[in-house]
Nucleic acid binder design. Structure first.
Length: 477
RNA sequence: CGGGGAAUAGCGCAGGUGGUAGCGCACACGGUUUGGGACCGUGAGGUCCCGGGUUCGAGUCCCGGUUCCCCGACCA
């Protein structure tokens, strides 16, 4: 029997229980690393495929760069090496000999890709370069958690180079929106787009943008990043081109990434005490058919209908599984609910007689989501139901997000709001303010400055200076 | 990396004061069952996290290490 700690009792235990019981991942024999099992990987694969399609639709192509980076490459960009130095894995020996220059296992690939771009770019005609990589990176994290923060993680990193800052900045925003749309439309995950504070921006970037998602415990998870790297990396790696006006100029580069962390977000946003609730588009199994019978005679009749429906649904393009295991129906109901399958079809003797099936939707709890419907037109009905389930999950998450953000105008209000949600408060973007918040309130930080802001001028809740922006402040993963 | 917990069968756990390991679930086989986690019987499954030490004897005591969980600092 599955043992899942109730979500309200211990959110962290609940999260880890689901990962174990739903067969998403195991711990690896190496600290901070995980083994992603087929069911967990399948979810990530759907996310990956949807994202990859969106990247290609926006003109990007995929390529691959080395896992190893000469240590000196990182040192070329001062901020970059300073930011990543504490979490580098460094190879000092190879082939039984000490290496002349240590190799870094990539924590991110701006540097080695910058080196390549410098070789490739000669003219404005070579621009823009719009490349994405699907790979894994290594960061020596102090404190890890499956999917959310692991020492090695799978992600994609996009790296582009442009002739003008305007064009590069457009790319930064375009990709932020690609992520935002992917989250909403494919994963039913709402979020808040915004600019990271100067304190929180990527090491080496001139500005960083993120989508912040609210988990079920009201902590934030940064779901993706999109960086405007300015000319910092172009200068460090000499990525120059001859422009129309016959003068040599440095490129403007961007980078953007989203990781398997999003699997964790899906768990923590949509999951409930029964287990996972998977958004239909990324569910490895969208429909499970559970046959129900007592006698051999019933079994034959039920299985005939179940198999017919299986083929009909499959032909309609649904990812469907017929669960013919030798287990009781009740066991199977719970098992598939834990694994988050969006729709369950029950076929029993009564259904065979009536030409019906039992239809249960995972987004509504227990028997509340169960009805009996005709076998006729089942595929179309389920197609529509999957859309509805997606919308319900998104709406629930969105309501939760917005009802837990409080507008604040004083520091006292912020202190109170972040105890149980996020604060949206006027804030001056100054590292001293980030430090003030971090020192005063444990676990709390500036999440981002949302892009969608009302026009106006307020006073910073810390410094009292007039500001035109509000910041999201809250506890974060 | 600091503070606190923990590690015994796949999972969850029990094993005062040292004497050679057990329970529930899961697993295999047989039978009865099957519309919300079935039951009976039989059986298989263990370097008690790793390495040292004390002892006639260590799951248990001592030292060192590893990993996981929680709280901080740091970070996608």
């Amino acid at each position: 029997m599955a043992k899942i700690t109730p979500r309200s009792q211990d959110f962290s235990e609940w999260y880890l229980d689901i990962i174990r019981e739903a067969d998403l991942a195991d711990y690896a024999p190496v600290r901070g690393c995980i083994v992603v099992k087929p069911y967990g990987w399948a979810i990530y694969e759907f996310m990956r495929d949807f994202l990859d399609r969106r990247f290609k639709e926006t003109g990007h192509v995929n390529a691959a760069f080395p896992l190893f980076i000469p240590l000196s490459f990182l040192q070329r960009e001062a901020q970059h090496v300073e930011g990543f130095a504490p979490e580098l894995a460094i190879v000092t020996h190879g082939g039984g000999e000490q290496l002349e220059e240590p190799l870094v296992v990539r924590p991110t690939s701006e540097t080695i890709i910058g080196w390549s771009y410098a070789q490739w770019v000669r003219s404005y005609r070579d621009l823009p370069i719009l490349i994405n990589c699907w790979n894994s990176v290594v960061r020596w994290e102090k404190r890890t958690k499956p999917f959310l923060r692991t020492m090695e993680f799978y992600w994609q990193e996009g790296h582009t180079a442009h002739a003008t800052h305007e064009e590069a900045f457009e790319e930064v925003m375009r990709m932020l929106n690609v992520y935002y749309d992917h989250m909403r439309e494919d994963c039913a995950l709402p979020g808040i787009r915004g600019r990271k504070s100067l304190y929180e921006r990527f090491a080496g970037a001139i500005s960083t943008f993120s989508v912040e998602s609210m988990m079920g415990d009201k902590r934030s998870l940064q779901s993706c990043t999109s960086h405007d790297l300015g000319q910092n990396f172009a200068r460090a790696f000499d990525i120059k081109f001859l422009d129309r006006d016959n003068t040599e100029k440095y490129c403007w580069t961007t980078s953007w990434g989203m990781s398997w962390r999003l699997v964790g977000a899906v768990i923590m946003v949509h999951g409930d005490d029964q287990g996972l609730r998977l958004p239909p588009k990324i569910a490895p199994i969208q429909v499970v058919i559970v046959p129900i019978f007592k006698t051999e005679e019933e079994r034959a009749q039920v299985m005939q209908v179940a198999e017919r429906l299986f083929h009909t649904l499959k032909a309609a393009g649904l990812r469907v599984k017929l669960d013919d295991r030798d287990e009781t129906p009740g066991y199977k109901f719970n098992d598939w609910e834990m694994r988050g399958v969006p729709v369950r079809v029950e076929v029993g003797p009564k259904d065979v007689a009536n030409g019906t099936v039992g239809l249960a939707r995972r987004d509504l709890p227990g028997k509340q989501g169960k009805t009996f419907v005709p076998q006729e037109g089942l595929a179309e009905r389920i197609q529509a139901l999957l859309v509805e389930i997606h919308n319900t999950l998104l709406k629930q998450a969105e309501d939760f997000l917005h009802s837990n953000i409080r507008e604040c105008n004083t520091w006292e209000e912020v202190e109170e709001a972040v105890q149980d949600g996020w604060a949206l408060a006027p804030l001056e973007d100054n590292p001293a303010n980030d430090e003030f918040i971090r020192n005063k309130l444990t676990g709390v930080k500036v999440l981002n400055f949302p892009l969608d802001q009302p026009e106006g001028e307020w006073r910073c809740v810390i410094t009292g200076k007039p500001v035109r922006e509000r910041a999201l402040i809250g506890k974060s993963y």
